[in-house]
């Protein structure tokens, strides 16, 4: 990247759109100006001035990479996650090839396009730091060529002659501070952009969290609750889903039943051994407080339950 603040001169020349820019650029190169110090600015793409461009942009490669990443994501979604929880539906195989194809196609396209776009934006922003003065006459149909010189004595004059020869209708030197100001403006734009995106994100968030409704909050659900009478404390339901047996149970059976209930309802936090090391425990705020009685030796918890 060119350091635009070094002590040198920058010449800025305006041409008609039909000026032979390509020939001019070649002549400037012969005069010893490196290509990256010549900038051609135009209101529309000049396909013949491509000499000034840096080496080829790896956009195609990035697009391909994005596409392949997309295929991987699609495969993971449609095939991978289906294998984690193999739920059969309607006789379709768990991993259905046509479906995987469709889903992968969409994710491939999505990532390919987005990658291309992001890469392009990055390249554009990097390109804009070349920092050249923008003249409103460019938009009205002129081509500008700006040449940066690193302070040789004769160079400016020689370059100016070349520019004139090519038909420039205006040539002016550009002050360094002008150039730098442009860069700062770019910074401002970046900050404004940040605020804009933050605002959009806040809007999106608020729209997501606007509404919530649940069956539990509905009157219809409470009407179901109302007629249920509470049974006296300590009583055992006779016909509910709770597991009650009329046959006498041995302590071993009770223990086994208890283990089963424990495994269904408690293990997540309390852990398989009651050690407070279940997979969910880490997410609880005061999990040590919760699990302490189970970890001490004098707790009433049957440690023999380990099996």
């Amino acid at each position: 990247m060119v350091d635009v603040t070094n002590n040198g001169t920058t010449l800025f020349a305006l041409f008609e759109l039909s000026a032979p820019v390509k020939a001019l650029v070649e002549k400037l190169q012969q005069a010893g100006i490196p290509l990256e110090r010549i900038e051609v600015i135009s209101p529309l793409p000049l396909h013949d001035a491509r000499v000034t461009s840096p080496p080829r942009i790896p956009l195609y490669a990035l697009t391909m990479t994005g596409g392949f990443a997309g295929i991987a994501v699609g495969l993971f979604f449609a095939a991978g996650t289906a294998l984690f929880y193999p739920i059969m539906t309607g006789g379709k195989p768990v991993v259905a090839p046509p479906v995987v194809g469709i889903v992968s196609f969409e994710t491939m396209m999505l990532l390919a396009i987005v990658t291309t776009f992001v890469a392009m934006v990055i390249r554009l922003r990097r390109g804009s730091r070349h920092a050249v003065v923008r003249d409103s006459r460019i938009d009205d149909g002129a081509v500008a060529v700006s040449v940066q010189m690193d302070g040789g004595d004769t160079q400016p004059a020689a370059v100016e002659a070349l520019l004139r020869e090519a038909g420039a209708f205006e040539i002016k030197p550009v002050r360094k501070d002008r150039v730098r100001m442009r860069r700062d403006a770019g910074k401002d734009a970046e900050q404004e952009g940040l605020w804009l995106w933050l605002g959009c994100a806040a809007l999106a968030l608020s729209s997501i969290t606007a509404y919530s409704r649940d069956m539990e909050e509905q009157a219809s659900y409470q009407s179901q609750e109302a007629p249920r009478r509470h049974s006296p404390p300590g009583s055992i339901p006779l016909t509910s889903r709770a597991i009650v047996s009329s046959a006498p149970v041995t302590p071993d059976e009770q223990l086994a039943a208890g283990t089963r209930v424990f495994r269904i309802n408690c293990v997540h936090c309390h852990g398989p051994e009651g050690g407070g090391d279940g997979p969910v425990a880490g997410y609880l705020r005061d999990y040590r407080k919760i699990c302490r009685p189970l970890m001490s030796n004098d707790s009433p918890w049957p440690l023999s339950m380990r099996s």
Partner: peptide, 17 residues
């Protein structure tokens, strides 16, 4: 405008994209 200046580099990037 993403700091668009109209340099040939930018045009090339845009057209490639």
């Amino acid at each position: 405008s993403l700091g668009w200046q109209g340099t040939q580099h930018q045009w090339q990037v845009l057209e490639t994209a």
